[in-house]
Amino acid sequence: MWSDDQIDSYVDLCMDQMEKAQEKLQTEFNFGSFERFDFDIPNRALIFSSSGQPQLKCEICFICSTQESSGSLQWAWGNKSLPEDLTSDSLGLKILSEESGLEIFSLPVWEASEQEGWEMASIALNRLGGIGVYRCPAGDSNLFVLIKSVAHC
């Protein structure tokens, strides 16, 4: 079981790693500047577009979602409405429940804020690998996805 200090240190490490990864995505691919995003579910992709033209195609997996109105986080593996081929990678985070002693990694849904969604996305980046994360807003919900690769369209 991890101590509070170990948990805080690990989250800080993951958040720092994510910040560096996000800066690299912004520098190399102009992340955050596109007008819209769309999912290409059959190809496990997130497409960023501007002026109606696809610009970037990202290979992704779903990590978790947060909902402001209920103050909750749901792991992608626990959301049966999402395609399994896009959620199965998130199952790799359940082992953290045993390692850390924190049951949040094994509960499909738990009380959480958007900030905790970012923290779980940063942990996913650290544990599962990838080159960054993206938060897909939808009303009062946010879907956090792990970016595995990026290519220009």
Rank of each mutant, 00 (worst) to 15 (best):
I7L: 12
I7A: 02
S9F: 10
M15L: 14
Q17V: 00
M18D: 08
E19S: 14
K24G: 07
K24F: 06
L25A: 07
F29D: 01
F29G: 01
S33E: 13
R36W: 06
F37H: 04
F37A: 03
D38C: 09
D38K: 13
F39V: 09
D40K: 08
D40Y: 07
D40Q: 10
P42L: 09
N43I: 09
F48Q: 07
S50N: 12
G52S: 11
P54H: 15
Q55M: 03
Q55E: 15
L56C: 08
L56K: 03
K57F: 03
K57Y: 06
C58K: 03
C58E: 05
C64Q: 03
S65V: 06
T66P: 12
T66M: 04
Q67S: 12
Q74C: 13
Q74H: 08
Q74V: 10
W77D: 02
W77N: 02
G78A: 10
L82A: 06
P83M: 14
L86I: 09
S90A: 11
S90P: 03
S90L: 09
L93Q: 00
K94S: 07
I95T: 11
I95N: 04
L96D: 10
S97I: 02
E98F: 04
E99C: 08
L102A: 13
V109W: 00
A112E: 03
S113W: 05
E116D: 12
E119T: 07
L125T: 03
G129S: 03
G130D: 02
G132V: 11
V133T: 12
Y134W: 12
Y134A: 11
P137Y: 13
S141P: 09
N142V: 05
N142R: 13
V145A: 12
I147W: 01
I147D: 00
K148Q: 13
S149K: 13
A151C: 12
